[in-house]
Amino acid sequence: MYKYKLVIFDLDGTLINSVLDLAIATNYALQHYGHPQHPEDKYRYFVGNGVDMLLYRSLPDECKNDEWVKKMRQVMMPYYAAHCTDNTAPYPGIVDMLKTIEREGIKIAIASNKHQSATTPMVAHYFGDIDFVAALGQREGFPTKPNPTIVDDIIRIANVDRSRVLYVGDTAVDMQTAHNAGVSVVGVTWGFRPRTELEAEKPDFIVDTVDSLLHLILSK
């Protein structure tokens, strides 16, 4: 019997490399309003807390307010919806790993701060033949990670004991989410943030490769 009965994955930076498309879409909105744009690398630190925080972080200091975030959303979101798969792709080995986990009878789910309106089609596009017990994104009226609500909801849907859950993510927000939910957590170093950020949050494990992650998930 495997140690874990449910593995919950973050999406962006863990399963898929989406930072370039997010950067292009946000820069499109910034350009639309005449604001300075940012290089792709900066967006590795802008993302992770949902679309509103992404837009807030991208704005000039004098425009960091709810009104400007709302205006940016009106331009950025339709553009991103039309272009979210232009450059985005699963990290190498991810699809095969998910299929192996599924074949071994371990439940898998997604918990993302990406808005649900983008999470659902992107999961269908890249992982259409994977049977996730849930693929939840940022939902209106629900708190974003690191609040543990999204993990609690998935555990309830999957009907597994919290002690048999492993959370997988690439940022401090992910590590904090798992800690807040009281589940085991592993940080992956191929995502958007450096190893030092993960280490500071004291996850149970840190892995550098997809093979190492699969080995951990299939531990007994």
Rank of each mutant, 00 (worst) to 15 (best):
V51M: 08
V51Q: 00
V51G: 10
D52N: 14
D52C: 14
M53D: 06
L54Y: 01
L54H: 05
L55K: 03
L55Y: 02
L55Q: 01
Y56N: 09
Y56C: 13
R57V: 12
S58G: 10
S58D: 07
P60M: 03
P60T: 03
D61E: 15
D61C: 08
D61M: 08
D61I: 03
E62A: 15
C63T: 00
C63S: 14
C63Q: 08
C63R: 05
N65P: 12
N65K: 04
D66Q: 09
D66T: 15
E67F: 14
W68P: 13
W68V: 11
K70P: 08
K70E: 15
K70Y: 05
K70A: 15
K71V: 06
K71F: 09
K71A: 13
M72R: 02
M72P: 06
R73V: 13
R73Q: 11
R73M: 15
R73N: 09
R73T: 14
Q74K: 13
Q74N: 10
Q74G: 05
V75N: 06
V75W: 09
V75L: 02
V75M: 07
M76Y: 10
M77T: 11
M77W: 01
M77I: 15
Y79G: 02
Y79H: 14
Y79I: 04
Y79K: 11
A81W: 09
A81Y: 13
A81G: 11
A81D: 12
A82M: 13
H83F: 02
C84P: 00
C84F: 01
C84A: 01
T85V: 12
T85L: 01
D86I: 00
D86R: 11
D86Q: 09
N87P: 01
N87K: 07
T88Q: 04
P90Y: 04
P90L: 06
P92S: 08
P92V: 00
P92Q: 04
P92A: 13
G93L: 02
G93C: 06
G93E: 13
G93S: 08
I94S: 14
V95H: 15
V95N: 08
V95R: 13
D96F: 08
M97E: 12
M97W: 06
M97H: 01
L98W: 11
L98G: 03
K99N: 08
K99M: 03
T100L: 07
T100H: 03
T100A: 05
I101N: 02
I101L: 05
I101H: 05
E102G: 09
R103Y: 09
E104R: 05
E104T: 12
E104Y: 10
E104L: 03
G105E: 05
G105T: 07
G105C: 08
G105R: 04
G105F: 05
I106Q: 01
K107P: 09
K107A: 11
K107C: 02
I108C: 04
I108A: 06
A109Y: 10
A109H: 08
A109E: 06
